[in-house]
Amino acid sequence: MRQDNLFNLALYFGGFVAAMIIVIMFGILFKGSVLSIKNFGIHFFFGEKWNPPMEKFGLLPFAVGTILTSIFALSLSLPFAISLAVSLGIYCSRGIVSNILSYLSDLLAGIPSVVYGFWGLFFLVPIVRNLEIKLGIMPFGVGIFTASIILAIMIIPYMSSMIVELIKMVPRELVEAGYSLGATSFDVVRKIVFPYIKSGVISGIILAFGRAFGETMAVTMVIGNVNSVPKSIFSPANTMASIIANEFPEASSGLYLSSIVYIGLWLFVITFIVNLLGNLIIRKFRAGENEF
C-alpha cells in the first residue's frame, strides 16, 4: 500500500514538473518581452517593418512567412504521407518491401535538419531556379516555395508513421468483415479504416504542423531571409523561428533583444492555439465516432 502511494506521488511530481516547465517558459518569455510589449503592444503583430537600426519592430512578415510555409508544406506532404501509410499498413504490411520502405521512412525522420538545408541549397534550389526562369520570375531559387518543399519532405515520416500505427490498431474483425462482404482494398481503406482512425490522423497532422512551424535550420538556409511581407509563393521571406535564430546572438540593445523574445512569445502562443484547435477538432470527431 505504502509503495503504491509512493509511486503515485512520484507520478504526480513528474507531471507537475513537466507542467511547471511550460508555465516557467511562458513566464520567462513574457518577462523578456515586457519592454517590447510596452513599446508596441498589440501593434507588434501587425507591424510590417523590421528595422533594428531605427528600432522599429513588427511581426507580420515573419508570421505570414511561417504560416504560409507550414500550410503549404502540410498540403504538399499530406497525399504522400497518407499513401505511404496506407501502402505500409494495408497493401504490403509485411515482407521485405515493407521493411525497406518503413526503414527508409524512419531514416527520413532521423536526418538532422541542417543536412536537409544543405541538400535543399545544393539540389533543390537550382531546380527551383530553373523553374523560375521558365516561369519568367526573378530566379532567386530560394523562397517560400523551396522552404515548403523541404518542410514537406521533413514531415512526411512523422505523419505516415503515426498513421501506420493507427491503421494497425483497426480491429482485424472489421477489416476482415469488409473483405468477406466482397469489398476491395480500396473500399476497406475508404469506408472502414479511415472513418475509424479519423481523429488520430488529425492529431498526426497537427503534430506535423507543429514540427513545420518550429523548424529553423533547414528553413533558414533556403527561405531567402527577407524581412518583408511576401508577395507571392516564390518570394523570399522569413519565418519566426528563423529570425530568432538569425538575430538573437548579436542583439545587444534592450528594445531589439526584447522584440526578438516577443517573437518567441508569439510563437509560443500560436503553437498553443494550434494545439488547442487540434484538440477541439479531435474531440468533435470523437463525438462523431461514437455514433459510428
Binding site: 517593418k49 523590421w50 528595422n51 533594428p52 537600426p53 531605427m54 532567386f140 530560394v142 533558414t220 538556409m221 531567402g224 531571409n225 527577407v226 524581412n227 523570399p236 522569413n238 538569425n246 538575430e247 548579436e250 542583439a251
Partner: peptide, 20 residues
C-alpha cells in the same frame, strides 16, 4: 538604412554566415 549588425535591407536576399 543606417548602420547596424542587422539592417532593413532595401533589396536582396539574406543568407546565414560567410559560407551562406
Amino acid at each position: 538604412v543606417g548602420r547596424g549588425k542587422v539592417l532593413n535591407w532595401p533589396v536582396g536576399l539574406g543568407a546565414k554566415g560567410n559560407p551562406g
